[in-house]
């Protein structure tokens, strides 16, 4: 995993050497998180923060933090309902966006990070992989809105817990650099 991160950083730094006025922004997002093939969790909400660093017109590196509260799951056993609380899921990581240019941008992205699942009887960390598609708009200078759909997989021991995340977000370009 470290090797992949180093390669990703090396690639983006190489891009930064090109003559381009990049920028660093700050954004927030929120939406829904739907467990995929998880019989012990149900749909919940997700929100978080992003810090997009646009290094070239094409590439953006985006450290992020997200927190999800997955919903409870109820099983009927012998006529009695038993409910398991959903996990609180927190993720730290970084995305790499491959973006088109213009006032409306369409971009695929991949990300990697560390994710923690916590509820009674469960407190464990896993490696998070995510990939998805985003659609971005720039309604005003330095300000952008986006809609994203992604699949997040929290992997450990060759299996994973997967969530489909659908979010809307807004970000503002705080600083520019050459």
């Amino acid at each position: 995993m470290k090797r992949i991160l180093v390669l990703a950083l090396a690639g983006t730094l190489l891009c930064a050497s090109l003559a381009y006025a990049g920028n660093i922004g700050l954004g927030a997002f929120g939406g829904m998180s739907v467990p995929v093939l998880q019989a012990d969790q149900s749909q919940g909400g997700v929100y978080g923060l992003r810090a997009p660093v646009s290094l070239t017109p094409l590439f953006t590196v985006e450290p992020f933090y997200s927190a999800s509260t997955l919903g409870d799951k109820t099983e009927n056993i012998g006529g009695v309902d038993y409910t398991r609380e959903g996990s609180d899921v927190t993720t730290f990581g970084a995305n790499l966006l491959l973006s088109t240019t213009g006032p409306m941008r369409f971009y695929p992205y991949v990300g990697i990070g560390s994710v923690k699942f916590k509820r009674s009887g469960q407190d464990e960390s896993m490696t998070s992989y995510n990939f998805g598609l985003g659609l971005g708009f720039t309604p005003a200078p330095k300000f952008s809105l986006d809609i994203r759909a992604e699949l997040q997989a929290a992997a450990k021991d060759q299996v994973s817990r997967k969530m489909g995340n659908l979010t809307v977000g807004a970000s503002y370009a705080l600083f520019s650099f050459n």
């Binding site: 995993m1 992949i4 995929v36 093939l37 998880q38 019989a39 012990d40 969790q41 799951k73 099983e75 991949v110 990697i112 490696t127 992989y129 990939f131 997989a153 992997a155 060759q158 299996v159 994973s160 817990r161 997967k162």
Partner: peptide, 15 residues
Amino acid sequence: ALAAAGCILTSGQFV
């Protein structure tokens, strides 16, 4: 990055 996760996409949790 995706391959490094092995067969993560074909697994699930069952009760």
